[in-house]
Amino acid sequence: MNAWIGTLIALCALALSAATAYVQHRARKRETLGADVTAYFHRTSDFARIKLFDGTVRQAGYHLVIWNHGPAPAERVHLAVADVEGAAVELADCPPDEFPLQRLDKGARYPVPWIPVSDTHRGARRFTVHLRWQDGNGTQERLLPMRRGQTNV
């Protein structure tokens, strides 16, 4: 009888070890297939002169940078920016066909000059950035509260 109990305990331990190894393998695989896309404001040391599509030249003190710091590429990266009330913020140097980005490789950064079209958004500091992308794990989303620092305007 003691031999049967010992065998049963050993089989349970083996099953638990196998299950743990499988879960760890799946977690590592999921990590290697995933992109980690985020966004941040980058303050330019001098105002960047941006020539818009209509030919006018504007100055940008910030860039909204999209950054993939995950181990895998991100595909079909969508960007949407909203103010604190949830209204969409349109950026002057970002035409409607710019997003989705087809691919953002590991470590890649994609700067978008921060030039809001609406005058009501030019002095605002708080925004929400909504990012959506596809990676080896499927569709991912991130909602980021953002705060822009003071400029020399």
Rank of each mutant, 00 (worst) to 15 (best):
A10Q: 04
V153W: 14
V117K: 13
C12E: 03
V129K: 06
F47H: 07
I50T: 09
A60P: 05
E141L: 13
R109Q: 05
H25C: 13
A82N: 09
A10I: 01
Q59G: 14
V77K: 01
R125T: 08
L33I: 06
A27I: 15
H121A: 11
D135P: 00
V117Y: 10
R142C: 04
Q140G: 05
A21D: 04
L52G: 12
A87T: 04
A88H: 01
A124P: 03
Q150A: 04
R26E: 04
Q24A: 10
Q24T: 14
P100S: 05
P100E: 02
P145M: 04
P71A: 00
V57A: 07
G138P: 03
A74F: 00
G70T: 00
Q150I: 03
S45A: 10
F41K: 02
A80Q: 03
E141P: 02
A21T: 08
R76T: 02
V117G: 06
G34D: 10
R43I: 10
A15P: 08
D54A: 03
K106H: 07
C94H: 12
S118M: 11
P73Q: 01
I50P: 08
D46N: 14
L101H: 04
Q150F: 08
W133A: 03
R43L: 12
E98D: 09
A35K: 01
D54L: 03
M1G: 05
G86S: 02
S17Y: 06
R26D: 12
G55D: 04
D36E: 15
L64Q: 06
E141C: 13
R132F: 02
D135T: 02
A80W: 07
V23R: 10
L16M: 09
S118W: 13
V81Q: 02
N68P: 00
A60T: 08
V153N: 07
C94P: 07
S17Q: 14
D105H: 05
P111C: 11
L14S: 07
Y110P: 03
E85F: 04
A19M: 15
C94A: 06
A39P: 01
R109A: 14
T44Y: 10
D97V: 01
E31C: 12
G34I: 06
T44E: 09
W114D: 05
R76S: 03
D93A: 10
W67K: 04
E75C: 01
A60I: 13
R109K: 12
A15G: 08
H121Y: 04
F99E: 07
R30Y: 11
D105Y: 06
L104S: 00
A80D: 05
L8N: 00
A82I: 05
F53I: 15
I115S: 07
V153T: 15
V65S: 15
T128M: 15
I9S: 01
V84C: 03
Q59W: 13
A10Y: 03
A48E: 07
N68S: 00
V117S: 11
R28D: 15
Y62P: 06
G138Q: 11
Y62I: 09
L143G: 03
E31I: 13
V65Q: 12
T128F: 11
N137V: 12
P73G: 02
